[in-house]
Write a protein that binds this DNA or RNA. Structure first.
Lengths: 215, 215
DNA sequence: GGTTGTGAACAAATTCACAGCG
DNA sequence: CGCTGTGAATTTGTTCACAACC
């Protein structure tokens, strides 16, 4: 019996994109099938974890053979909701927001930056790498017109909570927060955070404790 | 008995910077003491977790009163190795590398960008927001001269493993990888990763499964 | 009385190890 | 025979609940 029917654990969800990236590489190499061992090596985890993770999607492997790369990639894309693009809006047209708008990796992986938004009216109307800057108040309109489901917060920390409120208010149900601040969102809204300096602080800890601990 | 002597769990280490940020806010407000309850609220976790986490650092609280903000902040900074700056080198002077060099949050939190490095000799000698671009081969020299202990990989995915090798070779023991690739590092080197698009892919999953699951 | 610090209980995640199937 | 899929065992992380202490 497969685990397909059960809720997929968060830790597994966070690894699926890594597997998908590995599968994309295998597709480019025209590799037809892949073992859990090989996929584990590519994804930087162990084989048991790969098999357990994939079992949550369904029984898509063949014993004695491995997984069909193309079929598995398709099933995984479907599960992740990556069979179509997700236009995103970046809130905050400062340094970080502009840099993110310019970062090619988003569009490349299915998340085109459809709009930039800022509270500063002096910035409205500008084009940042081809993306127009709108006023924060335009969020609801932009959401409808451009089909935006994900908002990226790239403002200073003090503004982050207000922006999160505005995004939720506009009906944008997924938020990626780059501001170094803890924010709360309404029930039903998904929230993830990326804190660039925080990662360095964690490295600093292990650097300081190098003798006694690895990571 | 406190847990001070024991190894601090990874999950706890990852939260310490969040607490430290909250303590910094309290210091600005001239708040003298803080309860686990209040700190939990600020850090977006629950109070039991705060107390458990802090107990790994030592018994720095006072029953019936709470924690002395300044003293706790000091102890935490010391534990995290944040009592001095950590100059970093960014490898890759493309879009992402330049954006990161320009991101004020690093210097502000004790990680000044001391140098940029690139494999492309055409970029060498340029100044990016005041930071000079050197050739990749200069890594060992820069490491010694500038006291660099942390390297940030901001290259395309294909170059990431080579860069990681070069960083390790140069004796840089902590690596933060922004390239969307799995890389391996020698025993004793600390590695963390930030994959911008991956976070969006995770949000996409929960967006797609909105009816049945929250996050 | 109020709040910490921490064992004990619980939950989540990982790894083992092997039956089951191609 | 080879490799998946998965229960069971183990490890790691979280939460509870209360004794200890100010």
């Amino acid at each position: 019996m497969s685990d397909r029917s059960r809720r997929i654990p968060e830790a597994t969800v966070a690894r699926l994109p890594v597997y998908l990236r590995s599968l994309a590489e295998l597709l480019e190499d025209k590799t037809a099938t892949v073992s859990s061992e090989r996929l584990a090596e590519m994804a930087g985890v162990n084989a048991a974890k790969v098999r357990k993770d994939l079992s949550y999607l369904g029984s898509y492997g063949t014993r004695g053979v491995g997984y069909d790369v193309e079929y598995l990639a398709f099933q995984m894309s479907r599960e992740l909701g990556l069979t179509h693009d997700w236009p995103v809006v970046i809130v905050g047209a400062g340094n970080l927001g502009q840099a993110l708008a310019n970062y090619g990796g988003f569009k490349e992986r299915g998340f085109p930056v459809a709009a930039l938004v800022d509270a500063d009216r002096a910035k409205v109307g500008q084009l940042v790498h081809g993306v127009p800057v709108h006023h924060l108040d335009e969020l609801p309109v932009l959401k409808e017109r451009l089909g935006i489901a994900i908002g990226i917060i790239a403002t200073p920390a003090v503004a982050a909570q207000d922006v999160a409120d505005a995004l939720a208010e506009a009906g944008i149900g997924s938020i990626l927060n780059f501001a170094p601040a803890v924010i709360s969102v309404p029930e039903g809204t998904s929230l993830r955070k990326v804190d660039l300096a925080l990662e360095l602080q964690i490295l600093s800890f292990y650097q300081e404790h190098r003798d006694t601990e690895g990571v």
